[in-house]
Design a protein around this nucleic acid. Sequence first.
DNA 1: CCGTTAATTAACGCAACCGTTAAATTGCAA
DNA 2: TTGCAATTTAACGGTTGCGTTAATTAACGG
Lengths: 108, 108
Amino acid sequence: MSELPLIFAALSEPTRFAIVERLMAEGELPAGAFLDDFDISAPAISRHLNVLSNAGLVTKRVNRQQRLYSARPETIGVVSAWAMGHREFWENSLKRLELALQQEMERK
Amino acid sequence: MSELPLIFAALSEPTRFAIVERLMAEGELPAGAFLDDFDISAPAISRHLNVLSNAGLVTKRVNRQQRLYSARPETIGVVSAWAMGHREFWENSLKRLELALQQEMERK
DNA sequence: CCGTTAATTAACGCAACCGTTAAATTGCAA
DNA sequence: TTGCAATTTAACGGTTGCGTTAATTAACGG
């Protein structure tokens, strides 16, 4: 029984993906902080945050009128652990990918 | 422009996730190889393989009557690279997770 | 050729997903 | 208590996703 499909489902929605990225970069933020990032209503944001919470990707903390959300490192770690578990499968390809990127950088 | 949500969407479906896992473990397999793994029809399998192909997770090769599918290391590498790009965010948590797992193993 | 095997495409139904607006909840502040 | 601010819940509608069966394509084997 793997929770990965649930995690992937939560991250498959571009708005939710962006929310998680921002939370990882900036740390704890109130729900309202995402209203300016996307052209969707507050209820839509709220539901996205709830989906992320159900997948274990964020936690909620109440402070005064605000609901403060944070990304959960453990769950991002689960994704990482899955990828690392298949490292032998993709590592050669990734080396080539990194090399290509590096050469691309140097060429500029 | 990130292709990650598309990749995550493809992996969010348990059947597709299992298909990718098997292809990574066993290498190239014909479409029919997955018929016994799940309780769904051949057309359903075919559509799942097409979704995986559109996300860049598998490639198709024709040989006689068979369509042989393989997992694409580069795309798994993209997921890995994303997780590694946020390593500083989750690494401490992952260490604790590994430690807990290790202690769990030793306790048995 | 003919029948079988392997797989896909077509057509359809149902459930889930994601958006909206309106209403409800909760805390704060005048 | 009145009202505002922050967020969620309720109710509804359109689109997408995933399954089915039936039909089609393509290649092989007698």
